[in-house]
Nucleic acid binder design. Structure first.
Length: 678
DNA sequence: TGCAATATCATTTTT
DNA sequence: TGATATTGCA
């Protein structure tokens, strides 16, 4: 086991294997390296079996990257380490023990759409005007309460808004509705295993006996429920190693408690603490800028990040007339950098909100640079994709009323609103699941013979395919199902343009191929519900590592955490955008926004470009914008200001040269040949 | 019942 | 502005 490549604190973090350990790892301090080496050290030096190690990361992407690197360092044994997110771990526990808590073995995981529908329904039931209150906002209150191990409470009389009251009223119904559908939500994937461990000592023992060594990455973003789970899992030996950086806590809106990392010693008495303060990633220019921004936050663990890479390119601060010019500037700069030899995969454009990617995408297409947008929801937002997934859900879980209602008449098969209304109210009256009522439609009073007939046909169809899916062959069965219901024809008919129809059909094709590659990986064990679980736990759309090579990366600051690029564009440095002003009603959190900006700055290795627009089109109207306060916090000596207001980034090829000539002068860059067209 | 035009209305981040 | 909800019409 070679530890010579590590510095002293890194080595200490790797070799301290017994008892609780807090590793405070600043941005770019080689945190992942430490985790990987620690895994290898545990297995090789301490002879800990891989199966006794549980390593938890924040995203699935991080987990699979970590596994890959661990295998490289420690060999194939590392494959047997349990390496996943808290939520995936919780789902695993639930798959084994769901019935102990009264959930079906094949429980479903409710997605956001399901949750919102349930809440809307519950609001109506409580006589709350479901148009006056945004169900998603109610959901976020409920979710935050659950993650903090509490229940939503109404604010004292006159204080605060009515949302807390609505959430309080709706909460019990929401919980009941989930259970009635045999479903859990994301938060339950943490809460229910914790309850399981608390109520069933033998279940807890099963896990504490197995996992003797725990590691948690991104500990600053864990919430109360995750802490509880961790305390349970840590058993008697308390071999818990958590790694994190309080300056990078950016998920408090999801219940993350910076206090978890600040109070680690209190939760795990006798904990050791190691600080990693040397930055191996960025130039000192970039690091100094980052330090200047984050220093303005009160109440942090006082870390002093330093680097041996002194100097570096100045940070550019660019003002463009509007968001389109901002995007074009970024695109041309990227084109130029690529022309000068920077590989596209070493470049990223980061932004606060997903919506900001659009102008950038257009501009990059204009200059012919390939890119990949990470995150966003577009794929799952396609109606056809949602429809097919709803079919899956009903086939895997007949209790899923919401999905059933969604697809019972998709494609149109003559089961209209009137019929459905009658069926659901009959279900309500008799307390039977809707699916059972459908199967016995002829027993429902006041239902016309024709309607009952169509419902019966639908049931036959579903029963037939449910049996098919039970046997496996997920992909083939899906194709058969979609062919039988003439899904493609319906999609085509629902739109006039061929290309729009093609896109829809392609999206469904992509879904099927993702199902098929899941099937390939799981082999004969592949079942529909497991696929659905994976879909909801792993938001990465494509199976294979998305083509990072040759592509510039576009993503939000939140998804950028933990990643790095040679050249980073951080766009939209404007008040109300970064720092974001938050949803109205919700108080803004300027400290968290500052940490977010810090995360963005520290993603850059060599060069950082900060851009903003003087005005931005919002709701169709041009709105003047104020520069972000964070720009003011940068030491002047590190920054080069570029003012593009009143100029247009040239769209025509012959003007590009001219534009770059002008730009070179502005940036006082050494003369270089203009980029090749292309 | 199904479709198309019209009205409305939002606006953060993600497991 | 652009996506979705709702209404109105065939």
């Amino acid at each position: 086991m070679d530890l010579s490549g590590l510095n002293a604190p890194q080595r200490e973090a790797v070799t301290t294997t017994e008892g609780p350990l807090l590793v405070l790892a600043g941005a770019g301090s080689g945190k992942t390296r430490v985790i990987i080496h620690r895994l290898a050290y545990l297995m090789q030096k301490r002879k800990v079996p891989a199966t006794s190690i549980l390593a938890v990361t924040f995203t699935n992407k991080a987990a699979s990257e970590m596994r890959e690197r661990a295998v490289k360092l420690a060999g194939l044994a590392a494959r047997k380490v349990t390496l996943c997110t808290f939520h995936a771990f919780g789902a695993e526990v639930m798959r084994e023990h769901a019935s102990k808590l009264g959930f079906p073995k094949k429980f479903a995981i409710a997605d956001m759409g399901d949750q919102v529908s349930i809440i809307k329904r519950a609001m109506r039931e409580r006589n709350v005007d479901d148009r006056a209150f945004d169900a998603r906002k109610v959901l976020s209150i409920i979710s935050r309460a659950k993650n903090s191990r509490t229940e939503p409470q109404p604010k004292p009389e006159g204080q605060g808004d009515d949302y807390d009251l609505v959430a309080h009223l709706v909460f019990p119904l929401y919980q009941l509705a989930l259970k009635a559908q045999g479903a859990v939500d994301f938060d339950d994937l943490l809460l229910l295993p914790a309850r399981l461990f608390a109520e069933f000592p033998q279940v807890k023992k099963q896990y504490t006996d197995r996992f003797r060594y725990l590691m948690v990455d991104e500990y600053q973003d864990t919430n109360a429920a995750q802490l509880e789970l961790l305390v349970h899992l840590s058993g008697k030996d308390k071999n818990v190693c958590v790694v994190g950086d309080d300056d990078q806590c950016i998920y408090s809106w999801r219940g993350a408690e910076v206090r978890n990392i600040l109070d680690f010693e209190r939760h795990f008495p006798g904990a050791k603490e190691v600080r990693l303060e040397q930055n191996y990633r960025s130039t000192s220019v970039i690091l100094d800028a980052a330090n200047a921004v984050i220093a303005k936050n009160p109440a942090r663990k006082d870390k002093r990040m330093w680097t041996e890479t002194l100097g570096g390119a100045a940070i550019q601060s660019v003002v463009a007339p509007d968001e389109n010019e901002e995007a074009r500037f970024v695109a041309f700069q990227i084109k130029k950098a690529v022309g000068l030899g920077t590989p596209p995969e070493d470049i990223a454009v980061l932004y606060r909100t997903n919506g900001q990617s659009r102008p950038i995408e257009e501009a990059l297409r204009e200059v012919g640079v390939y890119y990949e947008v990470i995150g966003g929801q577009e794929f799952f937002d396609k109606r056809e994709v949602k429809d097919v997934i709803a079919y899956f859900k009903v086939l895997a879980n007949p209790l899923d009323q919401i999905s059933l209602l969604r697809i019972v008449n998709v494609p149109a098969r003559g089961i209209g609103d009137v019929t459905l209304e009658r069926l659901s109210s009959f279900a309500q009256e008799t307390g039977k699941p809707l699916w059972d009522v459908l199967k016995a439609a002829h027993e429902v009073p006041d239902l016309p013979r024709g309607a009952a007939e169509k419902v019966a046909e639908f049931c036959v169809l579903m029963e037939k395919y449910r049996a098919q899916y039970e046997k496996g062959h997920l992909g083939a069965t899906t194709r058969a199902l979609l062919a039988e219901i003439q899904f493609a024809d319906a999609a085509r008919a629902s739109t006039h343009s061929m290309t729009a129809a093609d896109k829809k059909i392609r999206a469904v094709e992509d879904l099927i191929s993702s199902l098929e590659s899941f099937e390939q990986k799981e082999g004969a064990r592949a079942r529909l519900m497991n696929y659905l679980h994976r879909l909801s736990l792993d938001t990465r759309e494509e199976e294979e590592e998305p083509e990072r090579r040759g592509n510039v990366t576009l993503m939000t600051l939140h998804s950028a955490k933990g990643l790095e690029w040679k050249l980073v564009f951080l766009i939209g440095l404007e008040e109300d955008l970064l720092p974001h002003s938050g949803m109205q009603g919700e108080p803004p959190n300027p400290e968290e926004e500052r940490r977010l900006c810090y995360v963005g700055i520290t993603r850059a290795r060599d060069r950082l470009v900060l851009t903003r627009a003087a005005q931005r089109v919002k709701r169709g109207k041009a709105v003047p914008r104020t520069p972000s306060r964070f720009l003011q916090d940068l030491p002047e000596a590190l920054v080069e200001v570029v003012d593009l207001v009143g100029e247009t980034v040239a769209p025509e090829p012959e003007q590009q040269t001219k534009f770059f000539a002008g730009l070179r002068e502005k940036l006082k860059a050494p003369p270089k040949p203009p980029p090749t067209g292309g």
